[in-house]
Design a protein around this nucleic acid. Structure first.
Lengths: 217, 217
DNA sequence: AATATGTTGTTAATAAATTAACATCTTGGT
DNA sequence: ACCAAGATGTTAATTTATTAACAACATATT
């Protein structure tokens, strides 16, 4: 196992998914520290904030390549810069969104996403009432225009916020027109070719955990 | 509720969180099968749909207590009923929501949540423009009225969709007035007493995974 | 300048989750 | 009625993630 240096170059960065998932949380914490003019923070302090083991923090941060200083800790500004860089949160990755319902609309208007590397450049829907309107800087088009827009703009990421029943056909359309990664907000599992990246976000899973903890403890 | 006794010690083995998180996905799949009039489904078919190991499916379903039949598979209707029961998705757990921004509004209007056991009965915000309006059947109140409403209604669950900076003080307020579980949609880690259940939902974690897979593979 | 201290970073051990192997059982066909 | 097939359910092995132990080291203090 040679997870030695993660210089960001090459594809050897086999970072564990749990670590990857924790990094945005750290980032949020560090940003808050910066606002409070805190300059340095130790792995112990970070661990205490998240109620976790300090060595786990150390390991997680080591993946980003950042170095702490003995007796001092980590430089907060450097942490923020390094994590943003590592996670490509300054890349402004362009995305198409399909299905401008409640959730879709919220995601488009949620400008927080922009500072986390995502830029929804256009949306698509079948509802003629919303088509041709504009939310933030994203215009809403009829589905038919996806093909042409897909050629004009170079978009790799597609977001599915359609009704559950439309998830699969939306995914098929995306794959057909060159989308490389799909962010699926429906609970439906979608079938795509192996080279397509799929990330499922299901708030129902979180809800299941909460209800379980509430009722069985 | 009793699940399974691990050994003679009499303590019950809790369901693993990964299993818990997969159950809503299964449920969604089974509901789709029912619509297509499929009556029985085997663990192999389920596993194929989710591209996972079939024994894992078997194990997951075993936790709910449901029994499959050799050569036949699992009864779809029974699966749906059992999982809904197991996850308390028919409990209509009442919830307060704090912060009627883009995301908060989407959650309130998202009637899908209702069929998954959650009923947002009221919301709170500081913005006088939204206060006193009604979304779905949830009225929006000023924060001040939380205390009285908390006494009148018996609500155990609180949802935080405020700006990040307000997350902690909102959590403090919730704890002070008897909320037992907090669903935190901000990336901020909140500090609460040990007996309070906290579930963090961070779409930034999912975003981090997607961007990483897109850029490093 | 020397020392004590607190903090990183590495290696080892434990715990948890997934995958594999196998045994069991029930149904359908001959 | 018997046998074969196919699926569940259990036990073992592997992989992965987390926690613990410890070594190295730079800084502040005396």
């Amino acid at each position: 196992m040679r997870v030695k240096t993660s210089n960001g170059k090459g594809d050897i960065s086999q970072i564990p998914e749990p670590t990857l998932r924790r990094l945005p949380g750290y980032l949020s914490f560090f940003k808050a520290l910066k606002i409070n003019n805190v300059e340095f923070v130790s792995s112990g302090q970070i661990a205490a904030n998240f109620k976790m083991d300090s060595t786990l923090v150390t390991k997680d941060l080591a993946y980003t390549g950042i170095k702490g200083r003995t007796k001092i800790g980590y430089n907060v500004n450097q942490l923020i810069e390094t994590i943003i860089q590592f996670l490509d949160f300054n890349s402004q990755e362009k995305a198409f969104l399909f299905g401008v319902g409640n959730l879709g609309r919220a995601l488009i208007k949620y400008h927080g996403l922009k500072s986390y590397g995502l830029h929804i450049v256009a949306a698509f829907d079948v509802d003629t009432n919303v088509v041709n309107s504009t939310l933030n800087d994203a215009k809403i088009y009829p589905i038919d225009e996806f093909r042409d827009l897909s050629r004009k703009l170079d978009v790799r990421l597609g977001i599915i916020t359609t009704p559950d029943a439309k998830a699969q056909e939306t995914a098929d359309l995306m794959v057909a027109w060159g989308i490389k990664a799909i962010w699926n907000f429906t609970p439906q599992s979608i079938k795509v070719p192996d080279n397509i990246i799929v990330e499922n976000t299901s708030i129902y899973s979180d809800l299941a955990v909460i209800l379980n903890r509430l009722n069985n403890s």
